[in-house]
Each structure stands twice: as C-alpha cells, then as structure tokens.
Amino acid sequence: MVIGDRVAPAATAAGATARLAARTRNLRKVYGRTVAVDHVDLDLPVGSVLGMLGPNGSGKTTTIRLLLGLSTPTAGTVELLGHQLPAGLGYALPEVGALVEGPGFHPFLSGRENLLRCAAAEPHLATAAMPRAVAEALERVGLSAAAGRRYRGYSMGMKQRLGLAAALLLPRKLVVLDEPTNGLDPAGTREVRAVIADLHASGTTVLVSSHLLAEVEATCTHVAVLHEGSVVAQGELGELLEAGNSGLLVSTPDTTTAVNALRDNRMPARATPDGVRVDLTATTGPEVVATLVRAGVAVHEVRRQRTGLEDLFARLTSADSPEAGLSNVATQELPADREVSS
C-alpha cells in the first residue's frame, strides 16, 4: 500500500514482477510545456480489479494510453503482462482488451458488422470462430436485439456497450476500461458491474478508470488515486479505507458520562446522534472500552467508523491535503497529435 510520498520500491525479483499484470516506474509524459504525468509508479496486481481515480486532468487517460503503448513516455518505463514496452507490444496487446476514450466505429455499418471487423484483427481468433465470438460478445453487453442496426443510429450508451463488446471478443489476461459506464442508464451500469465481476471471477485482471466513486467501491479490489499527474495513494481498497479510519463509535445510553470519562483520560471524544465518537489517533479500541468500564458506563456496542471512498478521495485530492502537495505541475490531457517527446 502507498499513501502520499511513501512509494513502494520497484520489484527486483522475477517472482515479484510476475505477480503484476502491469507496472510503471518513474513514468513521465510532457506535452510541450505541460506535464501530464509526473514520475508515476503504478502496480497492477494479477487478478485484481484496480480502480483508477482522479479529478479531471489528473493524468488517468494519459497513464492508460502509456500503459497500452498508444503514447510514448517522455521518461520512465512501462511493463505490460511481463513485456517491456515498446519492444514487447506485439506480444502483450493480443492478450489485452481495451475501451479507451470512447469507442470508434464505422457509422454506416451495423453493430455486428463493426464487431466482425474488430474480430478479423484479433490474431488469436480463428476465422471460423468469429461469428460465434461476435454473437456472444453482443449478448454479453445486451446488444443482440440491436446488432443489425447501423452504428450511427446508436445512442451514446449503445455505442459504449459496443466498445465494451469489442474488448470482450475473446478471453483476455487484462481488460482496460476507461469510463465504461459513460452514457449508460442505471440498468446498463449494473450490467457493466456484473461484467467486471465475471471477469474478476475468471481470473482476468481489470483496470477501470472512473469518476463514479460508488461504482469503484462496489466493484474494485484495489485503488490508485491520481492527483496533478502523480499517484498520491494506491493499494488494496480495504487497506486504504482502514488507513484513513481513526475513529471508534461507541453505542451507550450514558453519552455525557462517557464523553467526560474519555476526556478526563485525554481521549478526544464527542457526542453524536449514534453515540460517542472517539478519536483513536493516540489510543486504541481496548483502552477506550477499559476506560468506559472503569467509569461505570454501559457499553452496548463498539465499532470502527469506516472511512468511505468519497471521504478518502476528497482528503487525498483537496488543495490543503498534505498528500495532495506532491506535485504542483500544471496538468492537462491533450490530443495525441499535440504530443511532444524529449
């Protein structure tokens, strides 16, 4: 787990590298005088569902493009499925399905015809297997009924579904989804969540870039938070939430007595509608309970107050957060045709 400037060192053992589906080291991308990505060290564990979070302009899409070889880094290294980029792109990319920056298809072809063209470009998909692969992918994203309609007549949500279907034409080791629920209604969002769960259950590694914190919290096992082009936190979701959790909620009918007893023992506490909230920065749960019992306070329930992802995200990316001060570079994601390398 990494929070703030406590960055895990690069793996040196072959076994450690093998446990990562992708990783970057000292990754940096500059467009003219604008720094879009600044010394990013990102680890994507095999079999995980990693949610990449960050405000607009934080470098999420730029990082994904660098991971997939769609853009060349100004500095740093990228390793994808055990292959160093760019030399290993031809070996790694056939094992990757991706939906990045919205799908792009031929407007006058149907959804099925567009997918058949995508299938023809898959080196691991036999010609005879293409029709079935296309049909299964359309069924998986709920587009079977609209497969014969021209793409130009698709809604935004249907276009997004077709892009997802293209990424799922055959089993992948890694699936990368950039804002996969963009344009989808609640039912479509639930279906995408189910697809991600199926991929995770099958052992596929998934990287999801999203601004929907509730969706990330519901679907992801790991999280990486980007802010101003740098990674300010990454690790297992549960560990990150636990690291931001320093409170204990005590349910008791003796609220006033409990607060006074804790404060007398230099334990910061305050009354809340649900009971007594105790700050654990300088104490522990057992010490809190022991103090209350000695004071004769009736304790009905004690539980940790779990930090939500929204609270953690706000703390890490707020202007006055110490973790957010790691990089004060100007960040802006620009089109590839304005790319400048140095």
Rank of each mutant, 00 (worst) to 15 (best):
A146L: 04
A126S: 14
P131W: 14
S155F: 04
L237P: 06
E239Y: 02
A137T: 04
T181R: 10
P123F: 14
G148Y: 01
L240P: 12
K60N: 03
V293F: 13
P180C: 13
A92S: 11
D41G: 11
G235P: 11
T219R: 00
T291E: 12
G285F: 04
M52V: 10
V35S: 03
L312V: 04
G153Y: 05
Y151E: 07
A36L: 12
L207G: 00
G308C: 11
G188C: 13
G59D: 02
I64T: 01
V276G: 02
M156H: 02
G51T: 01
R306I: 03
A258E: 11
V250Y: 09
H200A: 13
E179L: 09
A120T: 11
V329M: 04
T74E: 06
G163T: 07
V302P: 12
T204I: 06
L143R: 01
R306Y: 03
S155V: 01
R294H: 14
G148C: 01
T74D: 04
R263D: 06
V100E: 03
E287D: 14
S209W: 06
L169M: 05
P45C: 07
A13C: 13
V288P: 08
E228T: 09
L93S: 10
P9I: 13
T219H: 00
A224S: 06
A298I: 10
R152K: 07
A218C: 03
Y91C: 00
A218S: 09
E242M: 08
L99T: 01
V299G: 09
F105V: 02
V297Y: 10
A145L: 03
A243T: 09
A21F: 14
V7A: 13
T307N: 07
G183K: 11
P107W: 10
L292G: 12
V37C: 12
E179H: 08
L20S: 15
D178A: 15
V288K: 09
L292F: 13
T74Y: 05
S110P: 10
A282E: 14
T252S: 09
A128K: 11
T257H: 13
A187F: 08
L312Y: 02
V288N: 09
V2A: 12
N245R: 15
G153F: 05
D311W: 00
A120V: 10
L199C: 06
A126R: 15
G142K: 10
E217S: 12
R112C: 02
Y91P: 00
D41C: 14
L27A: 13
G76H: 07
P86M: 10
N114R: 09
L312Q: 01
G4E: 15
A201P: 03
L312R: 01
G275M: 06
T317L: 05
G59N: 02
L241R: 12
A75G: 08
A120Q: 15
G163E: 10
A98K: 05
A319G: 02
V299E: 08
T17G: 06
R25I: 07
Y151V: 12
